[in-house]
Design a protein around this nucleic acid. Structure first.
Lengths: 212, 212, 212, 212
DNA sequence: GGATAATCGAGACGGTACGTCTCGTCTTCTG
DNA sequence: CAGAAGACGAGACGTACCGTCTCGATTATCC
């Protein structure tokens, strides 16, 4: 099925300047970190990147989309560094001990959420996504859902191993420990720490009601 | 003796026009609902309210603050209508059946979150709060925390009744069912329904691991 | 008859800032003199005048109109200085000697045309007027025609005195010595000097054909 | 020996595409006629001519120069059609009756000035020439002066025949009837017609003063 | 007639200015 | 003197062209 709405006329992507593209990513991330999202302007990004404004408008429809791609690029790069080969599917560790595995992954997430390199642009994108339908969808689809899917996979493995009740829906179950962390981080409704995420895992796995 | 350091010179609140104030609230909420938060401008609010721009800038530091106050006003009014007397402390119902009580309250919350009168301004404020420190703090303090405190109280009562393990921290426990709902609503990461919130309560109370 | 096409909605002229208006005139004339008309930009005028761009666009539809008004203002001021009271009707001198009177006035015109304070903006406006209908009309109506009317009056007086043939149309007659000067100045088709204008008057009054 | 200081490196004129050159001329003239000079852009000319922008910039320094050459080409073509062989010297008719000859030529000029095919580009070039030194010089030298020289020649012949006073300078004399027409056309300071130019010739030849 | 070199159409690029929009301040007049 | 009205300095918006700079793909001579 061909593109249903060919906005203006597509520029020739094969002739695109990779130098400019990278400079724009760098400038966008730097500016968001330095002055915050609302004070980051397309004009500012262009000036900082040493690029004409039209070069931005040629390839991205809005400031939010620039930042989204820049952040996706940053995530991909840093995932490549930390993890395995590019393109290779990731998976949560599976040592057989579900609680320990989840705690370990959440501790890494805590580290990432507290890293200022990620924090400012991620928060800015999340905020924009709440209000801007299209950005929100892309943010969720490209960044959030792939992460959540890893938890689904790990929880299903745990179900196979009899460590999780078979009637539990993994897609909902993962929210018991992921969403609280997300909300505390996004809305500053509480401190986030290893202790906190460990506790979340314990509560989620074993429930609040007495086992008696 | 006059104010010794008159920063801007404080306006005389006693002479404030209540007509204008209410018109500004109404205009702000109407505009956010109609055109969305980013396209809502101070100028637009003033024009719609039949008010000079300076009358807004005299009493509020920014667009976000206007909307925040307008929304607080709306919440107070609607709480007054629905609930009890103004100023009176609210509490979650306590029928002795913790699961049923929580499910009931969350179902009411689902209704509220899906009411478009609340949805647009609430989402806009939440988004602004992610990025604007001061708005975020006030949003959490004035709207979110009071609600959460009701859950803390109810959970503590359940602990007293032996329905919740005594070592559980209620402030964290409530996040197991509140945060997932919040995230799905804010970030559109999934549908929200009575079934969903019922499931969250069940999972949270009895855990994911088999009871065996 | 009221204004037939109220473009946007008229700004309130009574509240107009005279400081800004004068600063804009000064900046416009200075810039045209310094960098020429095509390189004079609205943005540049605003910056030099210490004024927002919108203040220019609020009161003038285009760069050409700004410059036209600035030049009219300059002309009015300098006429006031040199000549009599403002608003008073001017007239060419009438000593009874038509040739001498015309030569005197044209010599003064030569001086003016060679004064760089006038030359650059006048030439720029004339050029714009050739191509921009509306500017051209206003340029002619407000600057050129009033001057030419003075010649018409003087020539009619000469006709009454029997110094010019009665069947001659003064409006055409004046072009015999005014237009050649104008063309040489505008298009650099020849040098302009007292000698030249004196000669033009002689040729025009007494014709090219032998009198015998 | 190659060019010792190759400024840009001169393009090889022998390999120039005549197809492109003619297409550019046509496009330039058509655009000026359709949308006016200021809205005629190099990009527009290139697009309309089906030509790369660089092909224009390779051979002409500016939009004005393109139009100037295009117009010269048009003039040459139309002169060739109407007049004699290319390269042959033109001359004004000489029937012995100076007044009649001049009136005839001026009537033809009136026709040309009112032909819209010539009017728009000619006016545009004249306007540009007022402000752009180099274009102005070339416009005058290549288009205006050759025409004026014809009048000089005819007037000199008339002097030899005793129909014009011998002390009259023909280069100035011709301006008495040519410049008024030029100014009325350029600046719309009055209507142009056969009557008008006939009158100019009469006034110029026999003067304004009574012959007594 | 095949090699080779420059012109060609195309269009991305770094820039500048456009004319519009909204910001938050300042000013003027009205109730 | 608070408030409505709105002009003001400021500056970002998204667009249009500028003139320069690659890109292959034709030409069009020269060997």
């Amino acid at each position: 099925m061909p593109d249903p709405q060919p906005r203006k006329q597509a520029p020739d992507a094969t002739r695109r300047s990779q130098r400019s593209r990278q400079a724009i990513y760098d400038a966008a991330l730097a500016l968001v970190a330095e002055v915050g999202y609302p004070k980051t302007t397309v004009e500012g990004i262009a000036a900082r990147a040493g690029v004409g404004k039209q070069t931005i408008y040629r390839w991205w429809p809005s400031k939010a989309d620039v930042l989204l791609e820049a952040f996706l690029d940053l995530s991909a790069q840093s995932a490549e560094q930390a993890g395995a080969q590019p393109g290779e599917p990731y998976a949560l560790p599976d040592t057989g001990d579900l609680a320990a595995d989840l705690k370990g992954v959440l501790r890494a997430t805590v580290d990432e959420l507290l890293d200022p390199r990620f924090e400012t642009p991620a928060r800015a994108l999340a905020a924009e996504g709440l209000v801007n339908e299209q950005v929100g969808r892309e943010f969720v689809a490209k960044l959030l859902e792939p992460q959540l899917q890893l938890y689904v996979d790990r929880l299903r493995a745990a179900q196979d191993a009899g460590q999780v009740r078979p009637e539990v829906d993994p897609r909902i179950a993962l929210e018991l420990f992921v969403s609280p962390l997300a909300q505390r981080w996004l809305q500053h409704t509480g401190p986030i720490s290893y202790d906190y995420t460990d506790t979340l895992v314990d509560y989620a796995l074993y429930g609040l009601a007495p086992r008696a």
